[in-house]
Nucleic acid binder design. Sequence first.
DNA 1: ATCCAGGAGTGAC
DNA 2: GTCACTCCTGGA
Length: 268
Amino acid sequence: MITRELDYFNLQQICNSGQCFRMYRIADDRYSITALDKYVEAIQNGRQVTFDCTEREFTEFWEDYFDLTVDYGKYINAVSPRDKYLSAAAQMGSGIRILRQDLWEMIVSFLISQQNNIVRIRRCIDNICHRYGERKIASGGTEYYSFPTAENLSMAEEQELRGCNLGYRAKYIVSTAKSIASGEVRLDDISRMSYHDARRELLKLYGVGEKVADCICLFALHHMEAFPVDTHIRQALEKHYTKGFPKRRYKGMEGIMQQYIFYYELMA
DNA sequence: ATCCAGGAGTGAC
DNA sequence: GTCACTCCTGGA
């Protein structure tokens, strides 16, 4: 058990921010988080957050995963007080973190996300983890499944993947898994690229468009300048920023601002 | 029933 | 480059 006093951190807000699909509320203030082949449960009591894992697991994985070494006060304070809309949004979502998630897992997750809703995205990912992932037992005895590797998914048949309720997205996943498993596209190279270069490489993947590429850049590669625009964000921008969102002002922190807006609209 | 939800590919022009 | 159309699925 690891307990930390954390500012600008809220499990409920992170869970509903739409960036991770394997995080679930399992009790009033208790959440389960599965990432790659790891599992943890966390409980929040105000500033006090307890992670049900060893010191080693925390410092070697979860601390980085939740981006706990970064002070999010700098983002909150960067919001212009004159911008009432963004101020309200940032206050509402002040506990959101941009997680540092696995690149491959995010590629698949956001391929599935297109023209889809969060409940179904969660179910689809749960399905492919059950079918192609590895069964595991957490230290507390909870059974869970790891996220399948690109190699495993590259060997799947499209029809078989459709059994996971992926619909037409199944062909995107098979094709993308093959180009990665074959070495044609190298994820560790993309990890080292700038936002601009990484985005361009990701767009080469079958089924990855601009919105999905930006989500991957932000939620896996932690390129904070990525600003994914989906239909909801577009509507919010049209309504509150007729002259366009002031990206200049928020240079290098566009992504977290997008999350504040996204969460605010979701809660409204 | 028809529509559409946190898009992207394709072909036509 | 900008449409219009299509691609699964399930919930409203």
